[in-house]
Design a protein around this nucleic acid. Structure first.
Lengths: 195, 195
DNA sequence: AATTTTAAGATACTATTAGTTTCTTATTTA
DNA sequence: TAAATAAGAAACTAATAGTATCTTAAAATT
């Protein structure tokens, strides 16, 4: 009397390739948001994606890689459009605000949990550490406009605002407040360049 | 024919209290240095300390707490002696160099591994994040000597050099180089105060 | 259209290890 | 000397990472 087909979803229908990958990454992301990193198990992700563990292990070497991929899948890096408002201050603030995105999207707790096993390098990538040429370009334009003197610009000063924001993120696991942002730009960065 | 007492160390002799704790923390530290955080198991620590798991679990709630305790046991924070060389630059450099200590002692790999499960808060403590009054005092003295103007000093600028060193540590897991230190002090910190 | 190849999915398995329970007995304290 | 406390041994549970095997759906090839 019992219906044998408990699961209504097409039995015997198999997804492959990108479709399957997307389903797994989505499931991993959902798990991540629901139970957090420490409680995320491959088993549950597999079940949630209506597939099985070996399918996952064929593509990712371990738990961390899977989660990293899931995050990258959901958070493609900002288009790196380089702001050009005509004012250095404004441009810099736009860039720094972008860095808040990751935390705003995945939330402090998850980030905190991730912090762990992802290890330093990939994590840094998440936090937009990789070399971008955004700041140099913004500064170059400011020099051309005569806003600042080029001889004041050093490698370290170029990196300074992003370093400070990143530090704040790593310590607080919170989005940067408007005030902190302003302090970094107005009390530290710009004075070093303008003087 | 076989000698039954394989272990020569006094059988049936039990350590207690501080002596026992010290032995466990030492064993945990040694394990940590030998196999690294991810491979450290309570079992091995117990064996190494010639005791057993329950004894450890009676004192620390889990692996992380034990390791944290082991580190704190081995790295009591610097005596927080406040440098007073008569020159701001020199004083600051001394303070910043102290921050290298943790990494120099436990090494980048271990720190990297720890980064993980310790979670943000205790880790920050390891990195000397807690409020100290070292910098303010150094700056106060510099003001009194007439080296800098007191009106230039803001909360953020006070924290700036240590923030930058900490950022560097968190990103590189390496001791700060002499050059980086100099840049932070000479190209960023002092110019903001002297101007 | 039939055949071959590839890879999905199910299932069962090994191995590790965290953390617990129980019990015996050494050490301390009264 | 007796009672209370805590160490240590041993065995156990439970969770879960990662693997191996097998069947068969889907895709590629002929």
């Amino acid at each position: 009397m019992k219906d044998k087909s408990i699961d209504v979803t097409a039995v015997g229908v198999r997804r492959r390739g990108d479709e399957l990958v997307a389903a797994i990454l989505q499931a991993a992301w959902d798990e991540l948001m629901e139970v957090g990193f420490p409680n995320l198990t491959i088993e549950r992700v597999a079940t949630r994606a209506r597939t099985s563990k070996p399918v996952i292990y064929r593509r990712w070497g371990n738990r961390e890689e899977l989660v990293l991929a899931a995050i990258q899948h959901h958070l493609p890096m900002p288009s790196e459009q380089i702001p050009d408002t005509g004012r250095l201050r404004h441009d810099v603030i736009i860039v720094l605000k972008r860095m808040n995105r990751l935390i705003e999207e995945i939330g402090p707790e998850i980030l905190h949990g991730l912090m762990s096993v992802l290890g330093g390098i990939p994590f840094s990538e998440l936090l937009n550490l990789r070399r971008t040429n955004v700041m140099p370009l913004i500064l170059k334009r400011a020099v051309e406009r005569g806003e600042i003197h080029s001889e004041k610009i050093t490698e370290r000063i170029i990196r300074l605002p992003m370093d400070l924001v990143r530090h704040e993120l790593l310590i607080t696991y919170q989005p940067i407040s408007e005030q902190t942002l302003t302090e970094i730009v107005d009390d530290i960065f710009l004075p070093l360049l303008k003087k």
